[in-house]
Amino acid sequence: MRISTTIFLTDETITPVRLARELEERGFGGLYLPEHTHIPVERTTPYPAGGELPPEYGRTLDPFVALGQAAAVTSQLGLGTGITLVAEHDPIDLAKQIATLDHLSGGRFTLGVGFGWNREEAADHGVEWTTRRELTRDRMGLMRALWAPEPTPYKGEFGSVRASYAYPKPGGGAPRTLVGGAAGPKLFAHIADYADGWLPIGGRGLAQSLPVLRDVWSAAGRDPEKLQVVPYAVLPTPGKLAHYAELGVEEVVLQLPPAGEAEVLRVLDEFGQYL
């Protein structure tokens, strides 16, 4: 099982360069970074975990810039987003960012796709909340057209692109793509449509959810052996990781604190027992 990590990197935490070097030297599998462009002060959307929204949400570094720094100082470490708010991006620009990072890192990039929870943030990007999932699906289709080996046009409900020369191309025709979110028929349909697997936060209830996802995956004509499930933002225990292994999980992403260098390195020392 690969042991990867995620962290809210901010202007107050350990730097991407320092963290990436430590992760690779210690043998961790990857680094996944979340995304929030901004957090409107006048916010009515409740924090999904309950209580006050932690301050790091409004201080996150841009994940693609930070992962570019991490890529430049490592050679083996996996690099990913957990997650990219695809609906909040121009898909032509985003396709270029993703392909460039994947190319420069030697194919190490994983695109984590999410639909978001903060209505005010999405609204400032012009996103209609009730259609954000279909907007995301549409933008994934447009980006895949730009990543195609030959110039390929795309016309969707929300956007289009002419047949275009668009290089570099991600390795394998598209980056490894995992969709985050709570278990349910809508989410599983998205995973089976355009992704390589699921990025469930915390990994709770996998024993019940995985058979349902596998049925949806197989019904869509996808190879059962290729479905990937990567529990995300996990606070580990030996028993929890053993349970994931029994379910066939091959990678788990552990949560690091949004802290300075000394605290993050201390937690990495603790997580070393799971490598």
Rank of each mutant, 00 (worst) to 15 (best):
A20W: 02
D138P: 03
P224Q: 07
A220V: 07
R2T: 12
P48E: 06
G156Y: 13
R176Y: 03
E134S: 14
G78D: 08
F188C: 14
Y165S: 11
Y244P: 04
Y194S: 11
S160A: 15
W198Q: 03
T131G: 01
V249S: 05
Y274M: 06
G221N: 05
I83M: 14
P185Q: 14
G184L: 09
G260Y: 00
E24M: 10
A20H: 08
G181W: 08
R222H: 07
S209Q: 15
K169A: 12
R119Y: 00
T84C: 15
E42D: 14
L85F: 03
Y274S: 10
G116R: 03
G159I: 01
P55E: 13
L254I: 07
P63Q: 07
D196A: 05
P170N: 09
D215N: 14
G181I: 05
N118S: 01
G116S: 03
G141I: 12
W129G: 01
W117E: 02
R132E: 00
T74R: 10
G272Y: 00
G221M: 07
V161W: 02
L247P: 11
A148W: 13
E121W: 05
S4K: 06
G68L: 06
G272K: 07
S209D: 15
V161E: 09
T177G: 11
H190T: 15
R59T: 02
L104Q: 12
N118T: 00
G248W: 04
P200S: 09
V234M: 10
K96P: 00
G82L: 13
R139P: 00
P54F: 10
R266C: 04
L187P: 12
Q228A: 14
A49E: 11
P46I: 03
S4I: 09
D11Y: 04
M1F: 02
P175C: 02
H38Y: 08
K240V: 14
K96N: 04
A220R: 08
A262M: 05
L265Y: 06
P175Y: 00
